Every structure is written in structure tokens, then in C-alpha cells.
Simulated scan of single mutants.
Amino acid sequence: MAGDGRPVAGARLRTVALVGIDGSGKTTQANRLAMVLGDAGVPAVYRQNAGGRAWFGHLARRLGRADGPALFGRVGMLWVESVLRWLAIARTTLRSAFARDIAVMDRHAVDQYVSIRAHAGGRGEWLARLAYALFPAPDVTVLLAVDPRDAYRRIEARGTDHESLAYLSAADAAFRSLPESPRFLVVDAGGAPDEVTTAVLAALRPWLPPVHLPPDLDPDGPVTPARRPESPPRSSAPTRRSPGT
């Protein structure tokens, strides 16, 4: 991969990370992308790099608390989330090192940096970066860009968790302020799932060798998976999947 994020001639795509604010469609699109590529003969597998915030939010509500920070405190929740995401990325990186398929990652380290910036004003980000520096950056990072107001409506509609519009706006700004942001492939995630999947595939086309890119991945209309995406694998701190996740 070139220093500006462009593909290097002859390089094989190994890892793609889909990142974005909550409600941007990361889980849905990572599942769909892995399925569409696999059905077209391009070996690809979904990998979840969850931090457990949604799972702990569910646990907190069952215990009569508002959310995860109400259980651990805001700083404590960020530490828990950082550790769980580090472990998830470690597992994904290890699997990818011995696999020949494309790892389509649902979130990556930059999601944690954004969480720290939006929840804690960036305090402690240097420590997270030190820990996550052990992992190679994804070959391609796709930022699913969505208006925070639309993301808020999606989250409220799925009814499994809650984020304030203020936080979503802060997270959106944080993604664009990251030093990694110039390398992101930005895809408009405000449309219907099929439209977003089509846009993600179009953005990834330069990284997919023509010999591995069947004609049906360059459609005139939106891409619809031939099969319903499976539920993401369960982790020690699973998150729920929904059309707007």
C-alpha cells in the first residue's frame, strides 16, 4: 500500500476495516461486503472488533443502571472498551496472518481513538495508541459517513441502545480530525443498505485485482447479497446487529 493510501501494483488486499460513528452501518455493511465478495468467488470473511459498549449497556439496564459508564464510570468504561477491543483486534490480526482470505473488519483501532476523543476529550489517547501500535493498520479503511442526525434516528429505531446527538456529532468530528483520516476511503452511508454496499465495492475496486473481480461486482444497480448475512460471531463482549448498526 502506498503512503497516501493508494494500492501498490501487485499487492494483495488482506484487510479492510469499516469504521464510523454508531449508527453508520458498520456491522451491517461488513457482513454484506464479506458475503458479496465470497459469493462472487473472492475469499472474504467477516471479523468483529467490538469493544463491548453495547453489551455492557444492555447489562447495565438489566441491573437498573442507565448504561455502561453508570457501571464503571466514564473513564472506567473507556478502559474496559479499550482492553476488549485490543483483544478482539489481536485475535483478528492473528487469524489474518494465517488466512488467505480478505478480513473484512467491523471497526478497528481508530474507532477507539474516536471514542476517547468524544467521551474524554482525548485524555489517555496516547496510551491507547501505544497499545494499539502493536497491530498493523488495515490495508484499507473505509469510513462510512452519515449525518449524525440520521445516525441518531437509526439508533433510536433499533431500540437496543442509546447515544446522544451531541456525542454522535462529537464522534463525527473526531473521525475527521484523526491523523489517519487522509487515508480513509469515505463512503456516503446515508442511503439504503444495497446502495451503500454498491458504493463500498466501487471504492474498493482498485484494490481488487481484475482477475478476482467478476462482472457481477460492477452492476448498473445496487448490490444485493444472494443470501441473508449471518449474525456476527459472538465475542466475550458481543454487540447486537441491526440494519442501522
Rank of each mutant, 00 (worst) to 15 (best):
P210Q: 12
E230D: 06
T93H: 11
N49S: 09
P210E: 15
V187F: 01
D4C: 01
T15H: 07
A170C: 08
E125T: 14
A60V: 14
A192E: 09
Q48R: 15
A97Q: 07
L71Q: 06
P182D: 00
A60N: 12
H162V: 04
D218E: 10
L185N: 07
V223C: 14
M105T: 05
A30R: 01
E180A: 12
S164K: 06
R61D: 06
Q48N: 12
A157I: 13
V142E: 04
A17M: 13
T239V: 04
S82C: 13
P238H: 11
R100W: 14
V45D: 03
H212K: 03
H162Y: 11
A2Y: 13
S181Q: 09
R158E: 04
A133Q: 13
L78D: 06
H212P: 01
S236L: 14
T224S: 12
A170F: 07
R228T: 03
K26G: 01
R227W: 15
R47P: 07
V211M: 08
G3M: 07
A34V: 02
W55E: 08
S164A: 07
A54I: 12
A128W: 05
N31R: 11
D216T: 10
G23Y: 15
P225F: 04
S115I: 06
R158F: 01
G51R: 10
L18Y: 03
A60Y: 11
A203N: 02
L201W: 02
R14W: 00
V187K: 00
A170M: 09
N49H: 08
R91S: 07
L217I: 14
M35L: 15
L134M: 13
P214I: 12
E195S: 11
V16Q: 12
T197M: 01
G190S: 11
L165M: 04
P206M: 09
I155N: 11
L18P: 01
F184P: 00
D150K: 15
T27F: 07
Q29L: 05
R95A: 15
R107Q: 03
A66W: 10
V196M: 08
P209D: 09
R12K: 10
P7N: 04
W207L: 03
L165A: 05
P193A: 05
P219A: 08
E163V: 14
A151T: 05
L201K: 02
G68P: 10
S242R: 10
A50V: 10
S236Y: 05
G5Q: 00
V223G: 07
R65Q: 13
L201A: 03
G159P: 08
Y167H: 13
W207P: 01
A174M: 11
A137K: 13
D150A: 15
G159W: 15
G10M: 11
R32I: 13
P238L: 05
A34L: 05
W55Y: 14
D194P: 11
V8C: 12
I102W: 02
E195D: 14
G5R: 01
Q48L: 08
H108V: 03
A157P: 10
A203T: 02
A30H: 02
T239I: 06
V104T: 00
